[in-house]
Design a protein around this nucleic acid. Structure first.
Length: 287
DNA sequence: TGCAGTGTTGCTTC
DNA sequence: CGAAGCAACACTGC
């Protein structure tokens, strides 16, 4: 399940792999994922060059040379794989990812031909096409909150969010895309563990020191996860089909009943359903 | 065998 | 307005 670090890894790789490539063709067997008429979508992308890729929260934005933007959301099980004749498909990659490819972009630069393939087991992923104006006015992207790794995400700004949503739990706030963009279940769990704060704590009950700690850990955990190329706890893969590395250093997420990894803590990792979703935390050292 | 669980987000309902 | 529940899917695990 790609969250900010996974999407950032994909974006960085795409900038290396598909930059300046022209869309020569597009194939799909799951039209439902494309949020406009297929003919219009194809017409809008074919013949256009990809001039850059970036992201907003968990959303991938591929900019084309006519100013329009392909907006891709991988949702829970989406992968973007870039393949050339030369690229070696690793064995762990064949197991799963390949059989769920529902969309293929055929890309060309000079004589080089590659593909970008969207694998999506559960078919929740979606693809949109926006023009420059549409991007600015877009309701969906426009409603996203602050980028937690940007310079604008100051402690002061974070405190303001907590003040605004004082009745909500810190976990809900971290995962609310309209407040802070890009954090999902995995990183919310890990951030709160590192900060030593229980997910059920209400924003209004946090001390200044605790707020500062959480703010610090948001940036530290996301930063470290990007350096490790994301978390492949279940099925995330990068554009080579390779897993990330952060799952090896997860402290609480999906580690129910394991002893807490913090030195001197005799606690055990708990899993609790909070609003239909599992929260992972250590009873011993998160307060 | 069968059914709950899984996670992201938008839509519906109250 | 906000919160809660559910649907969009398909596979895993108990």
């Amino acid at each position: 399940m790609p969250e900010l670090p996974e999407v950032q890894t994909i974006v960085d790789d795409l900038n290396k792999k598909v930059h300046d490539y022209k869309v020569a063709g597009f194939w799909t067997d799951w039209k439902k994922a494309i949020k406009l008429d297929l003919g219009r979508f194809k017409k809008g992308i074919i013949g256009k060059r990809i001039v850059g890729v970036d992201r907003r929260g968990k959303n991938i934005l591929a900019h084309l040379d006519n100013g329009s933007i392909m907006h891709i959301h991988l949702k829970m099980t989406g992968h973007l794989l870039v393949k050339s004749k030369k690229s070696k498909i690793k064995s762990y990659f064949k197991e799963k990812v390949n059989q769920y490819i529902h969309h293929i972009w055929y890309l060309e630069k000079d004589k080089k031909k590659i593909t970008m393939e969207f694998s999506d087991l559960r078919k929740f992923g979606k693809i949109r096409l926006l023009d420059e104006k549409g991007l600015k006015e877009d309701k969906e992207l426009g409603s996203l909150g602050i980028e937690p790794l940007s310079n604008e995400f100051t402690l002061k700004g974070f405190k303001k969010i907590l003040e605004l949503k004082r009745k909500k739990t810190i976990r809900d706030i971290l995962m609310d895309q309209g407040l802070i963009a890009g954090i999902g279940n995995i990183y919310a769990s890990e951030i709160l563990f590192e900060a030593g704060i229980l997910p059920s704590r209400k924003a209004e009950d946090l001390t200044n020191d605790e707020k500062k700690k959480i703010h610090e850990k948001i940036r530290a955990v996301l930063g470290k996860a990007i350096r490790l190329r994301g978390t492949s706890d279940s099925d995330y893969r990068d554009t080579d089909g390779a897993p990330g590395g952060f799952q090896k250093v997860l402290k609480v997420y999906n580690r129910e009943k394991e002893p807490c990894q913090r030195r001197a803590c005799k606690g055990v990792v708990k899993r609790e359903k909070i609003k239909q979703r599992s929260a992972f935390f250590c009873e011993g050292c998160q307060i």
